[in-house]
Design a protein around this nucleic acid. Structure first.
Length: 274
DNA sequence: AATTTTTTTCCTGGTT
DNA sequence: CAACCAGGAAAAAAAT
């Protein structure tokens, strides 16, 4: 079992699953996978490569996600190998959809009893406040900004695979829906989507990663909307921002109000990432 | 289920 | 004064 099948996991993943797609509108999929057993045995460990492939198809299908956006090559393995993948492996292999796949396989491995509510893999798109895509970005560390989930222009940037080490662990049962984006990623994504950024935040110095909030409260509202917290305020959002200083995700910029700067631990904010 | 990481709340006090 | 910035504390939420 020392064989970590994460060798095949490393591809640019230039996909376009994302927000503005025609799929999921309303509350999609509410029932679990377990409720309806797969055509094959529910013991993923014994699946053949073909069954793994079939499972992928079905999961994507159930969630109405364009299957062509999934790099099947990364799943060229049998059930046994599939079961040894950990959470991170899935994210690496499938990006944001990795969450779903992980949840699915985890459930199946554990006998499948619960149902996860992917109710808001993407909370409904914008609404009124701001037409911002609430993309479910991949955790940012493996990917580069080329994974613009809404950009029709797929930048074929063959990202640099600076994969981090990860330990292989057993499986865990997870229930909540993935909340792919952290605050700083949320902010970054607003910056990265000028066309959908109604003057909320602006780059002060693109190459240095310095930016400034133009509409602090509006951004806070948007963030709150994403977190389903209508009482979010800039005051509170900024506190969270300040915690990033210690972690070097943000660097302090004093003197200028509402100005922040991405730090060395913030990935994906510039065009050519190291 | 337990632990760890992040974010949210609230707050006191200083600054622009 | 209003709108920010700095952090400490503690609690809640998420992730793993």
């Amino acid at each position: 079992m020392s064989i970590t099948p994460s060798a095949t996991l490393e591809s640019p993943l230039t996909s376009t699953w994302g927000p503005t797609n025609p799929y999921h509108d309303g509350p999609l999929v509410t029932s679990g996978y377990a409720s309806r057993l797969w055509p094959h045995d529910s013991q993923p460990h014994f699946w053949s490569k073909y069954q793994v492939w079939e499972w992928l198809q079905q999961v994507m299908d159930i969630h109405q996600i364009d299957a062509s956006s999934l790099p099947f090559q990364n799943f060229d393995m049998d059930g046994h190998q599939l079961c040894s993948l950990n959470y991170h492996d899935f994210i690496r292999a499938a990006g944001s959809v990795g969450h779903i796949l992980y949840n699915s396989i985890t459930e199946l491995k554990s006998g499948g009893q619960y149902h996860l509510d992917i109710g808001q893999l993407e909370l409904k798109h914008e609404t009124d406040l701001c037409p911002f895509p609430d993309v479910s970005y991949p955790p940012g560390e493996i990917y580069d900004p080329s994974v613009q989930s809404l950009a029709p222009n797929i930048s074929p940037t063959p990202s640099s695979p600076e994969i981090k080490r990860s330990f292989s662990r057993g499986h865990q049962v997870k229930k909540h829906n993935p909340r792919g984006t952290h605050l700083w990623e949320f902010i970054r994504d607003i910056l990265l989507n000028p066309e959908r950024n109604p003057g909320l935040i602006k780059w002060e110095d693109r190459t240095e990663g310095v930016f400034r909030f133009l509409k602090s409260e509006a951004v806070a509202q948007l963030w709150g909307k994403k977190k389903n917290n209508s009482s979010m305020t800039y005051e509170k959002l900024s506190r969270a921002m300040r915690y990033y200083y210690k972690r070097e995700i943000l660097e302090r910029v004093d003197g200028r109000r509402l100005v922040y700067k991405f730090g060395r631990n913030a990935r994906g904010w510039r065009d050519a990432e190291k």
